[in-house]
Design a protein around this nucleic acid. Structure first.
Lengths: 157, 157
DNA sequence: CATTATTCGTTATTGGACATAACTATTTAT
DNA sequence: ATAAATAGTTATGTCCAATAACGAATAATG
């Protein structure tokens, strides 16, 4: 097996290249979010709640492909930091409606700006066309992959 | 914020799309490798050792961007399953030289065939050109990302 | 040659993300 | 009225990744 790189066989797989790329992204994103007291999953949740006030937890879980039990700690972290509020839905006493606080809105927007920079760093050297191509290809792969068990028919928020 | 999808803001980031794509890949890969008693990191290590007999641990860590302490359990799993062997290097009594056993070779090749199928499933709907483009773009992003602390000058195996 | 610095593999620990089963309370379906 | 489904929660476990520190061996230095 005389190959140029020791991991040449693995390099043939899209999954391996993606893992390698994503590892770098994740480390940079983590460092980017750390000053805001956020991490990848709490940032994602905060942004979606920010954009969709009144969202319910089960819908949030579906949108982010996060298992509902795992959402509990995420939301607790955000609530404890006074970034979101949870109010019982009037039409269903089992459900909460999620919204950002004023503090959460501000932090969300600040973190967003930092993440825009992070993304620019990560995609340095890619043209706008290439970035769009990448997104398109990733979306196709995402559609091919296994979906979370919880990905059932999601009710409107 | 009237947007088409609840996570539309996040969809602007390459990292988010990659995470979503990679999550699906990882789940499928995990299921694919499970019948072989392997998981992502043990499979990767087995393949690289298979392709590079006599490889040393520190080099393997560098090749796979895995922290050296984390390699210990991975290699123990492979050794316990009789898939690899570790022999003390003659030229350096601190180091091990890694190689696959006959059993490891067989299993490696069987798992490889399954992973080829997995990759084909994951990239269904992508042309050969598109797959090559994806790999190229991922490599560029990988180069932009943060590298592991341990990524210092790697000695030859 | 002796001393210091570096390297190899290891132990220990912790954090982050993700998966599953089971549960109570509430709502929906029959 | 009863059974089934749903929303959120608790508990637990797996996988992968990061860091500090260590003893033994090797390399570098004077």
């Amino acid at each position: 097996m005389a190959q140029a790189a020791p991991d040449a066989t693995l390099r043939r797989f899209s999954g391996y290249g993606m893992k390698r790329a994503f590892n770098g992204i994740q480390a940079d994103l983590s460092a980017t979010l750390q000053p805001f007291g956020l991490r990848m999953v709490t940032f994602s949740a905060l942004v979606v709640i920010h954009d969709n006030p009144g969202l319910r937890q089960t819908r949030l879980a579906g949108v982010l492909a996060i298992e509902r039990p795992n959402l509990v700690a995420i939301l607790e972290d955000l609530e404890r930091a006074d970034l979101i509020a949870r109010t019982r839905a009037e039409t269903d006493r089992r459900a909460y409606e999620l919204s950002v606080t004023a503090k959460g809105r501000t932090l969300c927007q600040q973190a967003m700006a930092a993440v825009v920079d992070h993304d620019r760093r990560m995609t340095r050297g890619l043209s706008a066309d290439e970035s769009a191509t990448l997104q398109k290809l990733l979306r196709r792969i995402e559609g091919n992959g296994r979906t979370p068990h919880d990905r059932r028919k999601i009710s409107r928020a």
